[in-house]
Amino acid sequence: MTPMVEWLKAAVLEVQEYVRLQGAVVRATFSRPFYYRDIVEQFDRIGLGTLTVVVLTGFFTGAVLALQSGITLDQFGARPFVGRLVSATMVKNLGPVLTGLMLAGRVGSGIAAELGSMAVTDQINALRALGTDPIRKLVVPRVLAGFFMAPVLTVIANAVGIFGGWIIAVLQLRVASSVYWTSVVDGLYLQDAWMGLIKPFLLGFVVTTIGCHEGLRTRGGTQGVGRATTSAVVTASVAVIAVDFFTTRLLITLLY
């Protein structure tokens, strides 16, 4: 077989394994046994653990957005509309995508490294030998935490981003505070809020399932763990951008 065919075969098998994992996660989510302690622990680790990085990213993104767009809007004498631009951009797209990317970098890599280490030291096999299904014990809690915490983190990133934009608008662009906030509200429609809320659910699911998939199939000792971690971050980051595009396309058709 040519290397190209080999590569394609490996890629198809990889996708098949990933889809099988997703199916197993869905089945395990709705059937017993549940590991409540692990679920709570993962909500804490993925939710609270990612909060700082998401807040910082959201703040600076909102601020730089106001700074850059202020210059462009000036050319049309539209500086007072800076709030509208910041809010619409943050809520509809940047908030979910940046939160997804931060999750990919922090959570996706962490999951892949942790599960990868467990896989190469036989701890996953030990779990199965002790009567525990690793999907239920390790994967489901992480996926649930990613699925439900990503929207919460996104809303926080959006709020902090709009706040960052307000600081720049008031201090640097000399836009009146009331004008900025009125513009923020005017720039948002209900459909935008739906779009900004639906996307993070999918992004959280994708990032955590990719991290788990890469971690569980880790082979080859510590080098393998390194490869799995890198692969998880790269794959999850690309997936975040791709899923964002396709979801946006679909939601525009459905909502607008």
Binding site: S117, D122, N125, A126
Partner: peptide, 23 residues
């Protein structure tokens, strides 16, 4: 299937290479 195997594993104990203790 995996579900039935969990029951069978109830009467099996395994000592892995290096122990495989949960870190």
């Amino acid at each position: 299937g995996e579900h039935d195997l969990m029951r069978v594993r109830g009467d099996l104990g395994m000592v892995f290479q290096e122990g495989a203790l949960f870190d």
